[in-house]
Structure formats: C-alpha cells, structure tokens
Amino acid sequence: MSQRLRVNPIMCAGHGMCAELLPELITLDPWGYPIIARGPVPDELTPMASRAAAACPTLALLIVEEEGR
C-alpha cells in the first residue's frame, strides 16, 4: 500500500495552505494552484500529508491509498 496525493481541481480555490504545510511535495503555480510532485508519498511525510489534507479549506486535497508496486 502506498499513498498518493490528488487535488480535486474543481474544489481547489488556490488557498495555498497545502504548499505551506507540505512544501516537500507541493509547490504552487503562478496563480497559486498546487502542483503535486510525482510518485507516492514517502512514509516519513505521511503525517504531514494528512495534516495538509485536513487543513485544506475546501477539502480539495485528497490522499488516495493505492496498491503499492
């Protein structure tokens, strides 16, 4: 099992909170919308990833569980 981050582009309002909380994996484009690093969330970052997802004002940042390869 591994975790991946997804952004629901319809819900995301470009608040940028996720990039503040998880700069390791999320950067912002010039309009303030998130760009997510490719690949699964490294284990040591999963707590911060959950925190960023819970903090997103519109709950647009999702953590999806994947069958790991």
Partner: peptide, 13 residues
C-alpha cells in the same frame, strides 16, 4: 486570505 511572511495561512487557520 490574509497572510504575511511571518504569518503564513496555516498559522492563521
């Protein structure tokens, strides 16, 4: 969407 360098948004929230 208040934020400054010293007060990032996650801090306000």
């Amino acid at each position: 969407r208040f934020r400054t360098r010293r007060w990032p948004r996650f801090l306000v929230q």
